[in-house]
């Protein structure tokens, strides 16, 4: 039989549950209130609007591609940060965290300088390939990637940090080259961290508004379309679309967490 460690005092736990309860109510109340004030008829009418559905699909597409890019670009950097030391490492770490500290309107404006009509990359890509980052899915993805990549790098790094380097070493001695060790030992063992990061990146991407609306107002992502409905038709239509979009995003978020942590911990597992 396992003895239980001394439990914290009842009064302490009670006080903390009170504080936590206030917080949970604060988080859930606005969302529930918004959902409860919808009528089925209104939800059906807004759901039938083609541009609403297109905006939701676009948001999902863009967030999905962003998450893929975050994996391809962010996971290698996470590994470097976890496993190596190099001059300027703390500067690299600060740069990775930087997007969290910049207002997203500022991100959008800064991205215009590089990917806009007169921006270095924006103009060059337009001249060479005839592709534009304004008014396209590409613009949306760039804005999403900037504001959400931090989560993938940092969470994957925590995942890599937790992998015992001796497992990688022993794998090498067993005849596996560095790439095989990375794909067969390191990544499977760091998978929870990587998946957590990708999930957060997806969630952050799908909810991005500020950077997207400045870089590329069209095509409209769901948050932009909701804003558009709010300006044109007020609270009724915009809140109906908000509830539809929330339902889709939440379902996906829960699915990802389920994949990452399995049945036991879904949907609220440890991050």
């Amino acid at each position: 039989m396992v003895a239980k460690a001394l439990a914290p005092s009842r009064s302490l736990l009670l006080a903390f549950w009170l504080a936590g309860g206030v917080l949970l109510a604060f988080l859930l109340l606005p969302l529930l209130q918004m959902a409860a004030s919808q009528t089925p008829a209104r939800l059906a009418r807004v759901a039938a609007m083609a541009d609403v559905r297109a905006a939701i699909v676009l948001s999902l597409e863009a967030a999905f591609v962003t998450t893929l890019l975050a994996g391809l670009l962010g996971v290698p950097l996470a590994y470097l940060l976890a496993r190596t030391t190099f001059p300027g490492k703390s500067i690299v770490e600060a740069v990775v965290d930087l997007p969290l500290a910049i207002p997203h309107t500022v991100v959008g404006i800064a991205l215009l300088f590089v990917f806009g009509r007169t921006g270095g990359i924006g103009a060059a890509v337009n001249t060479l390939f005839g592709y534009q980052f304004w008014g396209t899915l590409g613009g949306v993805i760039i804005a999403m990637l900037f504001v959400s990549i931090t989560y993938t790098v940092n969470a994957a790094r925590v995942g890599f940090d937790a992998v015992d380097p001796r497992l990688e070493k022993v794998a090498r001695t067993l005849g596996a080259g560095p790439w095989r060790v990375f794909t067969r030992v390191t990544v499977p063992l760091a998978w929870h961290g990587v998946l957590t990061g990708l999930t957060l990146t997806f969630a952050r991407s799908i909810s991005e508004f500020g950077a997207v609306i400045i870089l590329t107002y069209y095509p409209m992502t769901a948050p932009v379309k909701i804003y558009d409905l709010f300006l044109q038709f007020g609270l009724d239509d915009s809140s109906a679309m908000a509830v539809l979009f929330l339902a889709v995003a939440l379902a996906l978020f829960i699915l990802f967490r389920y994949l990452a942590y399995g049945r036991r911990a879904a949907p609220g597992g440890r991050v």
């Binding site: 001796r166 070493k169 022993v170 090498r172 001695t173 080259g177 063992l189």
Partner: peptide
């Protein structure tokens, strides 16, 4: 030669078996 070409059985403390 790289580690994978040396044919060495390396036994770490706790033996470093792959937990997954």
């Amino acid at each position: 030669a790289p580690p994978e070409a040396r044919r060495i059985g390396f036994m770490f403390q706790d033996y470093a078996l792959f937990p997954h």
